[in-house]
Structures are given as C-alpha cells and as structure tokens.
Simulated scan of single mutants.
Amino acid sequence: MDDFSSSLGSHLLADLFDANALFDPIPAKDVLRRAALAAGAHVLEVKTHDFGARDGFTGVALLAESHISIHTWPEHGYAAVDIFMCGDANPRVSLNVLKAYFTPARAEVQMISRGFIGKTQRGLAAASF
C-alpha cells in the first residue's frame, strides 16, 4: 500500500450562506490580503472584478503558496470560497478571517489533501479511476 501520510497542499472549499458584504470588491480586496497574511502566506497580488449594478464580484489573491478566490452572488446571499495552500500556510486560518468579514449564517466546508508525496503518477491514476 502506498503512503498517503504527506501531501503537497491543502485545498479548502467553502460555501457561505446568508452572507453579508457581497457587493463591494474594494474592502474585500483588503480582506483577501489579510486572510492570506493571517494564514502565513506570501501575497504576490490581489485582484477583484466588480460585476456592477450590485451584481457581486470575484476576487483572487495570488500567493506564493497558491491562491485564495471568492465569487459572490448577493441576490442569493451566497459566496463560494476556494483556498489552496502549500507549505506551512494554514487555509483554515484564512477562512476564519473571511467568515469574520462576510458573517455567513452557515458555512459548509470541505478540505482536500492534494499531491500526495511518495505516490507515483501511475498509482494516482489507477487509484483515482
């Protein structure tokens, strides 16, 4: 049996329901930066895009350790969060910062280990399908 004890990174996916602050990407840009720094990540760049007319926004923090992204649907009170980090950075800490800002009534979170060390490509393909 192959060793699955160590992975290259952690991928956290969170659905934020009945969330707030889903319209304005300007303060969210700072929140993405703070979420990355709190997790121990190194921020390379933060970009946001406003869809206008209070239609929500998309934001991405490009990190040396990978990324944090968010896409909002204010009309549904919903935000989709994707945090992928490697090294010593902690995606759960990032999520805590984002939850404190967006104040969702409920969050559903999945954590996935990515890139198992010591597992061959052939073995990964066979195990995955």
Results as ranks from 00 to 15, higher is better:
55 D>V: 03
45 E>W: 02
40 G>A: 05
10 S>Y: 15
10 S>G: 15
22 L>P: 09
52 G>Y: 02
38 A>L: 12
22 L>K: 12
47 K>D: 09
13 L>Y: 08
11 H>S: 07
54 R>K: 14
46 V>C: 01
13 L>V: 06
24 D>H: 03
54 R>D: 15
15 D>T: 03
15 D>S: 02
32 L>N: 04
42 H>V: 07
45 E>D: 03
39 A>F: 13
37 L>W: 10
11 H>V: 00
46 V>N: 00
38 A>W: 09
24 D>S: 04
36 A>E: 05
15 D>G: 06
37 L>R: 14
41 A>I: 05
41 A>C: 08
51 F>P: 03
17 F>R: 10
16 L>Q: 00
40 G>C: 10
50 D>N: 06
15 D>Q: 04
28 A>E: 01
34 R>Q: 15
28 A>R: 02
43 V>P: 08
51 F>A: 08
55 D>A: 10
24 D>K: 07
32 L>V: 01
16 L>M: 08
17 F>K: 11
24 D>P: 01
24 D>L: 05
23 F>C: 15
37 L>P: 11
34 R>D: 14
26 I>M: 11
63 L>P: 00
29 K>D: 00
50 D>T: 06
26 I>Y: 09
55 D>C: 12
61 A>W: 00
46 V>H: 01
53 A>V: 09
21 A>W: 00
55 D>F: 11
48 T>S: 04
13 L>N: 07
42 H>C: 09
53 A>Y: 11
31 V>G: 09
60 V>W: 01
34 R>G: 13
10 S>A: 15
48 T>A: 03
55 D>Y: 09
41 A>F: 05
56 G>C: 05
23 F>V: 14
39 A>N: 14
47 K>I: 09
16 L>A: 07
51 F>D: 06
19 A>L: 00
30 D>Q: 13
